[in-house]
Design a protein around this nucleic acid. Structure first.
Length: 905
DNA sequence: GATCCGACACGAG
DNA sequence: CTCGTGTCGGATC
């Protein structure tokens, strides 16, 4: 069951006469319980409640039918029932058939409604169906329902007209859908006479819709012809006004309707389309044309607050300031008006147009404010009939046809709604019909297209603002076509880009568009563009020849009203070709003026850190741990290992401790098989091990990767071994992924009997002072700035975090002092045995003595940099980046002569 | 729903 | 060849 089906089922219950004995079971069925489950519920076998008239379904809901007027008592009764604690229903609900009260147990939110309105609140009940709450559904009932009904109509039409499934016909079908939506909207808001469209279609199409095809075709044809030119159309079609405006410009085939499709069309017409939100609705009906995404129901739409994170600092805030400053000056206000009329907004990944819709709406709102102010200033003398904000100033590129069509429609609807408000305010408004020119939405691949062909460069008194939320696609999930697009765009420009996110292409293209002319752009992106290796590759290419980052939102968790938010950390980056204007960094609720915003989205010079496979300071090399590539077969839990060793004590030498990030941070214990290349037969002697080796060989031989298939021949060895794989005496382990909440990185020192997994970086047989550096605040600061991230957590990498970590030249004495400091930290940790690193470094619960020894370590180390401890993290980073930049400069100078020699030789 | 890291293919050097 | 990184995530409490 998806949300719309649940809504429909609840509507049916609400429409039927109330039957108290039946209601809980009907509700269970509406929530998607299969008939068999409902029967068991009815017979009492799985009804956990002992209260008469109440039904409790484990983890789903607890519903009670009460005496008339006793709804709230009923609810508090089941709330306090012990069974509620044991069986954890998601929803509590009590009703007497007139009123209904319900409660969402986890959040405590409650609902008090008339029983007959049950279906209007279906979003609230979704947890009873095992779904999480879907706020979009609660707030935008009409949008969800509309999307659901359109999906059914779409499916029914495709079923009846299989030949329409071809890509060419799909466009026609998509256009048909948007025209139908327009008509349904128009007849509900008064663009058409009340119910004009549905009345005429349902009168003339026959009871079963046998004539729907020709009726709709006639209606559309009429709307595309001025009255008086409709001789060839049936007389009834003359009632339609002339609409035109792109939407109806082309003639269009209409598919055949069968009874089902016809009924779904009727259902859709019955909705009150006046209430739909063009921004959200657009995203929702995108899923209509893509059955795979039906269950998502617009999950990835950008919420209005997130859109405003882009549009606000891009130009709306500036406009507001200008309006504010203009004050009582007629001339200044008129100038603002002029500027608003010259603003063009371009979304190169516009989807169903929600950025454009919001931008349009916001511009209209500001225009209204200015007009209002002007009317006050001159007593209405300058009142104007029409808005100067034209849809033609809104440009979009969208790759999927249905979304592109929807975007055009959404803009029309937004325009209509804005005009209606304009009319309310000023008493006059543009006639809704015929539609004027629409937005310039192009259905094409933005990465292949010359953007200037879509949105011509701004002329005199014009500004273009690029805004949008392009797709984030990591290299693992890219389609071949997307990879091709990246190569097409980037092959000649970037040294390595294959592993970067697709989203960077939009930044490159946006920078190209605005470079050398007045312009600005801002895009939502995954935070990976401001972290890790991407920074040094992407930003030097974007931030050249006058482009700067003029505002940025530091990473925030993606969220919209959808039930299951995409779990991704996002940033917004605004780039501009203008040197003037304050740079601003937004961090959560904070807003901070910046001198310069660099690729890490920090207020710092444009230094970006490049990966280095070897240390560029006097530090030992750090490696990534070894990778088993074994489908788990070379790895043993503690129990498995103990069992093996008790059965085959001679196998013990082949078993070693195996440590990943969890083992380091949380003290888990795992083991792995570890043998030398020539020991395959020695390992095979043990039947349990032989079995595992076979599994490894099988798994590897079926791999897509050549290197892994090759490794099938040595199943007793890890698929990728770093160096010798094991230390002589000791090793420092640094988890590759770790929580960023800890005040220090969870580094650990281990003995020789350990194999590090790829979830750890490892320094083999290190001096102790390395530990002191890795455990320092300075290292933490550096890592928090330059490391890659997973969500918001650190991805430690040797190439960015260690090999390039700036240190001063230490004296022998200083190294000795750091050695001692490292041992002091370790000793303090041991005193808290058996507490794990995760427990010891819990930011809320770090022991005082450990805190103190770390403070001393920091003081010792930092004094070696500048003769005293640093005052704050800003000072730490400044110093580190200065040292880094100087070192890179020096290396370049050393490199240059070498290259000369090479090229001469 | 907050928190915290696993495993591997695949590209880069 | 050897080595390192990313993941509009996922498991787990």
């Amino acid at each position: 069951m998806n949300p719309t089906e649940i809504a429909d089922a609840l509507e049916e219950i609400a429409a039927r006469p109330f039957d108290g004995g039946e209601f809980p079971f009907a509700f269970a069925a509406a929530m998607g319980s299969p008939q068999a489950t409902v029967s068991k519920l009815r017979s009492g076998t799985i009804n956990k409640s002992k209260v008469p008239g109440a039904v409790l379904m484990n983890r789903k809901f607890y519903a009670m039918v009460t005496e008339p007027g006793a709804v709230d008592q009923g609810l508090s009764m089941i709330r306090s029932d012990k069974k509620t604690t044991t069986h954890k229903p998601a929803i509590l609900l009590a009703t007497d058939g007139v009123d209904l009260s319900a409660e969402h147990v986890a959040s405590g939110d409650s609902l008090h409604i008339k029983f007959a309105d049950l279906h209007h609140h279906f979003g609230f009940f979704l947890p009873a169906a095992g779904m999480s709450r879907y706020k979009a559904a609660e707030e935008n009932e009409v949008d969800v329902k509309a999307a659901g009904r359109l999906a059914k109509l779409y499916d029914a039409l495709l079923k009846k007209n299989p030949d329409w499934k071809t890509p060419e016909r799909r466009h026609d079908l998509n256009q048909l859908m948007t025209r139908l939506i327009f008509c349904m909207f128009a007849e509900d808001v008064g663009i058409f006479d009340n119910n004009l469209f549905s009345r005429l279609i349902f009168t003339h199409a026959g009871d079963k819709g046998e004539e729907a095809q020709s009726c709709i075709a006639s209606a559309f044809a009429a709307m595309n012809l001025p009255k008086g030119q409709r001789q060839n159309l049936p007389a009834w079609a003359d009632a339609f006004p002339y609409v035109n405006g792109g939407l109806f410009a082309d003639t269009l085939d209409v598919p055949k309707f069968d009874r089902g499709a016809y009924r779904y069309l009727q259902d859709a017409c019955q909705l009150d389309w006046q209430e739909i939100n063009p921004d959200i609705f657009g995203s929702m009906i995108q899923s209509v044309a893509d059955p795979d995404k039906r269950s998502e129901l617009g999950m990835h739409y950008t919420s209005v607050p997130n859109i405003l994170k882009v549009l606000g600092p891009l130009f709306l805030d500036d406009l507001d300031e200008q309006i504010e400053k203009a004050g009582d000056s007629r001339k200044a206000q008129a100038r603002v008006l002029k500027r608003i009329e010259g603003i063009r907004v371009f979304d190169p990944a516009c989807g169903s147009g929600n950025f454009l819709v919001v931008a349009y709406r916001e511009l209209r709102a500001r225009e209204m404010r200015v007009l209002e102010r002007l009317a006050q200033l001159d007593g209405g003398a300058s009142a104007q009939m029409f808005s100067g904000v034209r849809l033609a100033n809104f440009y979009g590129i969208e790759i999927t046809d249905f979304a592109a069509e929807t975007a055009k429609l959404a803009l029309f609807i937004a325009e209509y709604q804005a005009n209606a408000r304009f009319g309310e305010m000023f008493g006059n408004t543009a006639p809704a019909l015929p539609l004027r020119d629409g937005g310039n939405i192009v259905c094409d691949n933005a990465l292949r297209l010359d953007w200037e062909g879509v949105c011509p460069p701004p002329g005199e008194n014009e500004e273009v603002f690029i805004a949008g939320n392009p797709p984030f696609v990591g290299f693992n999930s890219r389609t071949p076509a997307q990879s091709e697009d990246m190569r097409f765009l980037l092959a000649d420009r970037l040294k390595s880009f294959e592993r970067l996110d697709l989203v960077i292409c939009w930044f490159i293209k946006a920078a190209d568009y605005i470079r050398g002319r007045a312009g600005a752009g801002a895009l939502v992106s995954t935070n990976s563009i401001a972290q890790g290796v991407t920074v040094n590759i992407l930003w030097p290419e974007v931030l050249r020849e006058g482009i700067r980052i003029h505002f940025a939102h530091r990473p925030f968790m993606w969220s919209n009203n959808a039930a299951k938010n995409a779990a991704v950390s996002c940033v917004v980056v605004g780039i501009s070709s203008s040197r003037t204007g304050q740079s601003i960094i937004f961090d959560g609720e904070l807003r901070k003026d910046a001198n310069n915003i660099n690729g890490y989205l920090l207020d710092a010079p444009d230094v970006t850190v490049a990966q280095k496979g070897r240390p560029i300071f006097p530090l030992p090399k750090m490696d990534v741990g070894s990778i088993a590539r074994d489908e788990g077969n070379l790895i043993f839990s503690e129990t498995e290992r103990n069992q093996l060793v008790s059965e085959h004590p001679e196998a013990a030498p082949f078993i070693r401790r195996y440590m990943g990030a969890r083992e380091v941070a949380q003290g888990l214990v795992r083991y792995c098989l570890w043998a030398e290349t020539n020991e395959l037969d020695d390992v095979r002697r043990f039947p349990p091990l032989a079995k595992r080796l076979d599994a490894v060989a099988k798994f590897r031989s079926e791999s897509d990767a050549q290197v892994t298939r090759d490794a099938a021949a040595v199943p007793h060895r890890f698929g990728q071994i770093t160096g010798k794989g094991v230390p002589k005496k000791s090793a420092i382990l640094m988890p590759r992924t770790s929580s960023s909440r800890r005040p220090y990185l969870p580094v650990e020192l281990v003995g020789s009997d350990v194999v590090a997994s790829a979830d750890c970086q490892i320094i083999f047989d290190p001096p102790d002072w390395c530990f002191a550096i890795l455990a320092s605040k300075l290292q933490w600061c550096w890592v928090s700035t330059v490391s890659g991230r997973m969500k918001n957590d650190f991805r430690y990498s040797s190439t960015l975090c260690w090999h390039v970590f700036p240190i001063p030249r230490f004296t022998e004495d200083q190294l000795e002092a750091l050695n001692a400091s490292a041992r002091a930290i370790l000793k303090t940790r041991y005193m808290h045995h058996p507490k794990t690193i995760a427990q010891l470094y819990d930011p809320d619960d770090m022991p005082d003595d450990l805190r103190e020894v770390h403070r001393q370590n920091d003081e010792l180390l930092e004094t070696m940099y500048i003769g005293r401890p640093f005052r704050n993290d800003t000072e730490r980073l400044e110093r580190l980046f200065k040292l880094y930049a100087a070192r890179i400069e020096k290396l370049k100078k050393e490199e240059a002569p070498k290259r000369m020699v090479k090229s001469n030789g």
